[in-house]
Design a protein around this nucleic acid. Structure first.
Lengths: 219, 219
DNA sequence: ATATAATGTTAGACTAATCTAATAAATTAA
DNA sequence: TTAATTTATTAGATTAGTCTAACATTATAT
């Protein structure tokens, strides 16, 4: 375990490097809302502690140790979110901020008890998978709603953003994780998508539909 | 709200100054496990922020602002402890450490929801009163078990220490908050006390009995 | 292929929280 | 009532995390 700040860097490096396996100083600086030199010196420190592999002017990569640390934090964050929703009755759009704080609580007991009370859940309220104590992530095929063929029937399994404004929008449209929907129409002009959920048509902008993840393959 | 460190200083100042209304630099240093100059500079900072009133070589006193802050932190700590016991099923002897971390979580929503789920409780698992959102503390007359007359029947309402070793000891003796007991004998020699709880005699050392608080007046 | 733009690094300073060593004030004891 | 002891303060250094300004490298665009 590192400091709170180190944990936040590791978490961000993890999520930003998911796609390509590495992340650049500028991306991290933007995400963490600090200046480039700050990231630079922090990354050197994380490298000294063997959380990341890094050479000047190259991308930053997590080591196995760093990945393990990242997954431990993510596990805590997602368990906390689900706990806040299921046990404490809060809304999925308001738990992210609280979980950002709870994820730094250091207590195996606290988190293992949560896991137990929630009956070893596989995903958080946004559909994101919850790593187990060994850092193992349950995987399920998922693609953006925006990439689905017209006529296809799919299940919403996750959202790829957890900003309150976005979740509020989904709440307003009456959409949630687990819903089965049918793709009615994809507009070429603006990329908006019309879907059918229990007899009701719902129109989603491209920006929204690309952040809704559904079961199954790409088109 | 101050920093985490400031919050810990304010909390300690509050508890150490409960009896006399003030606390000395050396006491604080001991409690917080830091050196005197560290406390000295921190106290100057807290004074600049109007959390404490302080003049060199004098005792440290919380201002009204400081008291309010202290009570807000204590409220969060005690709610968290009770929540961990009642909702999460942890033991009263293991929740203190976790609550020390949870008390710094910044979320009205989180704590008010806890309060609601616990049905606006008056005391934590150790019997300590829980301040309300305005910092008001429910009071109840309480005196150490060690100061009770032989033959008296009293109810255990709190413990004045929450070290795991002490609570483990009470668990082993089968005593808990809410128990009604009778004082059988007070030994003059070593101050130990023999009590009766549901037909069973239990012997408690002076050190233990002075940290068990019971209903009612002094002898 | 060189100039320009974008990105990354180094140097040096700042704040928060801590420390040790030296000094000062207050208290206690002779 | 002075000396010794305890307690508190000041001065100066250290580490973590941040910043700005200056410089260096890499990428991009004529």
């Amino acid at each position: 375990m590192g400091t709170l700040t180190e944990e936040n860097y590791i978490k961000s490096i993890y999520s930003l490097s998911l796609a390509t396996g590495e992340v650049f100083v500028s991306e991290l600086a933007k995400k963490l809302e600090v200046k480039l030199p700050t990231v630079n010196s922090m990354v050197k420190k994380l490298a000294a502690k063997k959380f990341v592999a890094y050479a000047p002017y190259q991308g930053i990569k997590l080591t196995d140790k760093g990945k393990k640390e990242a997954l431990a934090i993510i596990r805590k964050h997602r368990l906390a979110e689900l706990f806040l929703v299921k046990v404490m009755g809060l809304g999925w759009e308001e738990v992210h901020e609280i979980a950002e704080q709870l994820e730094h609580v250091n207590s195996e007991r606290f988190y293992n008890r949560m896991d137990e009370l929630l009956n070893y859940p596989k995903a958080d309220p946004h559909g994101e998978p919850i790593p187990d104590t060994h850092g193992k992530i349950p995987t399920e095929k998922r693609t953006p709603l925006s990439a689905q063929k017209e006529g296809k029937k799919v299940k919403i399994i996750a959202v790829s953003v957890d900003q309150k404004s976005f979740l509020d929008h989904l709440n307003a449209k009456g959409l949630q994780i687990g819903d089965t929907i049918m793709i009615v129409k994809r507009e070429l002009f603006d990329g908006s998508v019309t879907i059918l959920k229990s007899q009701k048509e719902i129109v989603l902008s491209h920006q929204v539909s690309e952040n809704i993840l559904v079961s199954g393959d790409e088109t």
